[in-house]
C-alpha cells in the first residue's frame, strides 16, 4: 500500500507540491487528473526519486517503508515503477541489454537468480509481441528513433518485464492513437490483481475508459482538491477543470 501524507516538494526553490494526501491500497488503480502545471509529473518524479526535486515536508511510504529515503534503484527494487511521460533515449545502449540489465538488477535485489540471454529473450519476445511492438524493438537502441507511440509501448514493455507492485503511469496515453492506447491499456490491465496497484496520471477520460480506475483524484495547485469514483472523470470531461478549481479555491 502506498501512503502519502502532507507531501510538499519544490524545484529550484519553487514550491510545486503543497501537501498531498493520498492512499493507494494494494489491488487498486487510482487516476490523477488535473490541469497543466498542477504538479502531476512532479508527484511521479518525487516518488521515483529524481534529483532536483526537493521534498520539504510530509511522508511517502510503501508497505510502511519510507521510500523517500531510498535511492531510485532501491525504490525500483521495492516494486515501484515510473512510466515516463517523455521516455529517455539511450544512444549506444541496446534495448534488449537494457531490459535484461534492469530485470536482472531487480532479480538480484530480490535474491533471485539472474536470467541468461536465452531465457531473457524468450520472455522479452513474448511480451513485446503481446504489445504489438515491431520485431526489431529489442535490437534497436533504447528509444532511439522510436515513434512517440513506440516509446510509450516500450515503457509498458519494461513494466511488463519488471512486474512492479505499484506503477505510476505519467501521461502514458499522450501521443498514442486509439489502437495503441488500447494495447497500452491491455498491458496495464494484464498486471492488475491483488498484489498490483497503479497511479495513472492523465489529462483525458479516454485512457480511463480502458483502464477503469477505482478512484479518481483531481490535482490542482499542488493539492488534491477532490476525490471520487470513476464518475468524477466523466464529470471533468464534461465540465473542465476550471469550475472545480474555482470551487475549491
Amino acid at each position: 500500500m502506498l501512503e502519502i501524507k502532507g507531501l510538499t516538494a519544490e524545484i529550484d526553490g519553487k514550491q510545486i507540491l503543497r501537501g498531498i494526501d493520498l492512499v493507494v491500497p494494494d489491488g487498486e488503480v487510482h487516476a490523477i487528473m488535473g490541469p497543466n502545471g498542477s504538479g502531476k509529473s512532479t508527484l511521479g518524479y518525487v516518488l521515483a526519486g529524481r534529483d532536483g526535486y526537493e521534498v520539504t515536508g510530509g511522508t511517502a511510504t510503501f508497505d510502511g517503508v519510507d521510500i523517500l529515503a531510498m535511492e531510485p534503484e532501491q525504490r525500483a527494487a521495492a516494486g515501484l515503477f515510473l512510466a515516463f511521460q517523455y521516455p529517455v533515449e539511450l544512444p549506444g545502449v541496446n534495448n534488449a541489454n537494457f531490459l535484461r540489465t534492469a530485470l536482472n538488477a531487480i532479480r538480484r535485489a530480490h535474491g533471485e537468480a539472474e536470467l541468461d540471454a536465452v531465457q531473457f529473450l524468450k520472455l522479452a519476445r513474448a511480451e513485446s509481441k503481446r504489445l504489438s511492438m515491431p520485431e526489431d524493438t529489442l535490437k534497436r537502441n533504447v528509444n532511439v528513433g522510436f515513434s512517440g507511440g513506440e516509446k510509450k509501448r516500450n515503457e509498458v514493455l519494461q513494466m511488463a518485464l519488471l512486474r512492479p507492485r505499484i506503477a505510476i503511469l505519467d501521461e502514458t496515453d499522450s501521443g498514442l492513437d486509439i489502437d495503441a492506447l488500447k494495447i497500452v491499456a491491455d498491458g496495464v490491465n494484464a498486471l492488475r490483481g491483488p498484489a498490483f496497484s497503479a497511479l495513472v496520471i492523465t489529462h483525458y477520460q479516454r485512457l480511463l475508459d480502458h483502464i477503469v480506475p477505482d478512484r479518481v483524484h483531481v490535482l490542482a495547485g499542488g493539492r488534491i482538491i477532490r476525490s471520487g469514483g470513476p464518475e468524477l472523470a466523466h464529470a471533468l470531461e464534461a465540465e473542465g477543470y476550471a469550475a472545480m478549481v474555482a470551487e475549491a479555491a
Binding site: R75, V88, L90, P91, G92, V93, A102, A109
Partner: peptide, 25 residues
Amino acid sequence: AAQLFYLRSRGVPEAEARAILVRAF
C-alpha cells in the same frame, strides 16, 4: 543526468548505470 535517472529508476545501481552510459558513449 536524465539518462542516469532513467536507468536507476529501472533498478540499475548507480555505478552500473554509469558504466552502461560510458560504454554507450
